Simulated assay, not measured.
Amino acid sequence: MSEANPKKGVFNIFILDDSASTRNIAKYSLEQNLPCSVELFPDLNLLLRKVPQARPDLILLEDNAEDDLGISACETLKKDPASKNIPVFFLSAKKDPTKRVAALKAGGVDFLLKPFYPEELVTRVRIHIQMHRLRVENVAQIAEQKALLRVLCHDLVNPIFAAHSLLDLKLSLGKPVEEPTLKSVLKCCQSALDIVTHVREEHSLVKTNKQFKSETVVLAEAFEEARSTLSERLAKKKLTLKIDADESLQVEIKRVVLVHNILNNLLTNAIKFSHEGSAIEITARKDESEEYCHIEVRDYGIGMPPEILQNVFKDAAKTSRKGTGDEAGTGFGMPLVKRYVEKSGGAISISSTEASAASDPSEQGTTIKLTFPL
């Protein structure tokens, strides 16, 4: 089973054994007693080629008395990131206990001597598949919990920074805090509360494997809300945010996700890598079929080198770097954006031209394109 795409309800088992009778007995026993599909392989190379794409829930692997081919195959599977976590169960013809131990040391989870008792095979296979699926589910939930922690650490910064900047400016100048400023601060606090509330809701949904509910969002309003949250950052670098979106254009998505988890992260990056006094553009358009909406965030900043561009959406990759105003970064923003775009049924792509002495200023910078169904 793929950790990225776990199967539901049906186990997928691969069996490799040079004995047709052993393969057939194992297949029949498993399919009659487990909700599974079994694929038989008479040849090791065929199995090794198929495993990375199919990623079965368990592999029954022959380990005969004449050679150590099964052990070598297991070692090969365990070295490949695509198959290293798939349980390998040996059907062994070896009577020597040290040989069986060697199979387990190679990465096997269990072994059964041939000829085997079918009911024992079924029971052991069921246990190992259930353990494997629990482990995969735990890994997936841990990854989700880490992502939510990053949301709290990363996305709360924008509204808190905005509220702090508004109050700090007034206090540093010794001026009273007027009602418009208080309303802006209150709005920022509400945004922070919205993010916390969403993370709490998503945390509870992770445990039940459910998705958060979407709502109808007017894009022009979402863009203006993002501009309001980031107004202090824009003003600090004297940047102009140009918004171009039809007032009637709407998408089905959770508002806090679109504004804070997606737009604010994209615009914060654009601000970070833009030159002082330049412009950032955000546009929204229907495609010709009127079935999809395309949102673009475009800056004319320093762009991205190829090594960062190809890894920008990867969690484990080191893509953080200083901005044009020496701003620091975490590298969490873009992977979080991709996560939320795809969880909301959308797609994301990026193109970038790195600034250089030879590049046209109007061509350099980065464009992020989001696509959502209407």
Rank of each mutant, 00 (worst) to 15 (best):
M304W: 05
L230M: 06
F332L: 06
M304H: 07
E281Q: 09
D326W: 06
Y300T: 09
L249Y: 05
L239W: 13
G323T: 04
K286Y: 13
S248G: 09
T324Y: 00
E290C: 11
T208M: 09
A316W: 12
T268I: 06
S274I: 07
V257G: 01
R227T: 01
K210Y: 08
L241T: 02
A328W: 12
A220Y: 11
G323W: 05
S228I: 13
Q250C: 13
A245C: 13
T330K: 00
K318M: 13
A235Q: 14
E327A: 10
K286V: 08
L241M: 03
K254N: 15
S214M: 08
A245P: 01
V259R: 02
D244R: 12
G329F: 03
M304R: 09
E290L: 12
I302D: 08
F332D: 11
F332S: 01
K207F: 12
Y292C: 11
E252W: 08
V312H: 00
Q211S: 14
Y292V: 10
M304L: 15
F332H: 02
E276D: 11
R321L: 02
L258G: 08
Q250S: 12
G331W: 04
A222P: 02
I280R: 00
L249N: 01
D246K: 13
K237H: 14
R285W: 02
G333I: 00
E232Q: 15
E327G: 06
F313I: 03
L241D: 00
R227Y: 03
D299V: 04
I282D: 07
V257P: 01
K236I: 06
P305H: 13
L266P: 04
L219G: 04
E232V: 14
G301C: 03
S231P: 05
L241A: 02
E291N: 13
V218F: 12
R255M: 10
F313Q: 00
H260W: 09
S274F: 06
P305T: 15
L230T: 00
I280W: 02
S320F: 01
G325E: 08
Q211E: 10
G303M: 08
D287L: 04
G303N: 01
H260G: 04
S278I: 08
M304Q: 14
I280H: 03
A316T: 12
A220T: 06
I308Y: 10
I243D: 09
E290Y: 11
R255E: 15
G325A: 14
H275Q: 10
G323Q: 08
G331L: 11
K322C: 11
G303C: 07
G329V: 07
L230I: 01
T208H: 11
K236P: 06
K272R: 15
T319V: 12
A284P: 02
A245H: 04
V259I: 15
E290T: 07
L234M: 08
T208F: 03
E307H: 15
E291K: 15
